[in-house]
Design a protein around this nucleic acid. Sequence first.
RNA 1: AACCCCAUGGUGUAAUGGUAGCACAAAUGAUUUUGGUUCAUUUAGUCCAGGUUCGAAUCCUGGUGGGGUUG
Length: 349
Amino acid sequence: MSAKPKILVALSGGVDSSVAAAMLVEEGYEVIGATLSFRSPDPAFAERQHCGAKSDFDSIEQLTAKLGIRHYVLDRYHEFESRVLRPSWEAYRSGLTPNPCCLCNPRVKFGELIAFAREQGCLALATGHYARIENGLLRRGRDRNKDQSYFLYRLTPEQLAFLRFPLGGIDKTEVRRRALALGLTVAAGRKESQDACFACDGECFAETLRRLFGELPEPGDFIYNGRKVGRHPGVHCCTIGQRKGLNVALGVPAYVAGIDAVSGEVELVTDEKMLECNAFAVEDLVLHRPLPANCFVQIRYRTPACPASVSVENGRVEVVPETPLRAVTPGQSAVFYDGEYLLGGGIIK
RNA sequence: AACCCCAUGGUGUAAUGGUAGCACAAAUGAUUUUGGUUCAUUUAGUCCAGGUUCGAAUCCUGGUGGGGUUG
């Protein structure tokens, strides 16, 4: 009779989750693997989706064979559609730029995997995220360049208590080294890049959502200094600070500065100073600790956190960054840190 | 109707007789578990037909297209 503690590890087919699984086996856990599938039941979508590619499963197969662990595939497309894709589309169509990943993590990815882990009698769920959990508080991954704590701020205390992040204390080069040492050739050889789970080739994610929900395109005007300078295919394809893909040649780079979902007008500026923001509000809060009057705020993934003064009132945070921030975007997540520790976050108004 | 001006990559421009350059846009790649940003690389042009010249985007003639002035 095995006395080994049992743990579920989320496997994507990438190096990170593969190495996380191997580390847990080495540590003496009884490891089982699971992968969520968000593949559309509609073949027209499924065949263009990046998620659930054959190479993912080749990689997972190689891993589970090497480690001798069981692997389950959980189809959670419907949950994903109703709890992530639909709300994301509603945000895009109203001129906001949502973080689908921030919604997916607590609502679907971790929610479903934790439920499955409990069913299987596991004591914990492990993933390949670069983040740490200390005393119930999220801490940035040791590899600051790969830190993924930003996307995890909406996880609940109950979810955090059940989670393990084996990669939180090591860096990417070490992960690659271990993958090669383990002979995980498929995973190690894969490209790093990961798009949105539901992304399709040749179009932006929001455009895929529009097709998925059968909405008509609603083109509108680009406005520069009060003049119409071009057309866009719909406000869902525009985000604050965006430069690429506008198809507007003004002789100097132009950036999206404002989106009016009602009129469909998207305002462009050529002076980047116009994108700077001195104060903004954050709502739909998830707070793990009370916010001190001064902390750090991070307004998008891979943008350095900026010192800011904050005040919380009625479920709303007023943020005044120490230096103006570029392209603060409604719908995106603002996440608050005290040094390396994640205090909470919310959605930019 | 007459006269004047203009015509260069998708857009805006530079080169006034000597290898057609720049910016923006676009494409590709790098980076990235959102959207973006940023970086690198690439693609692509002298309105048409003649003429002068060793050589024409550049000078001449005509045509076409656009703008303007006069009436």
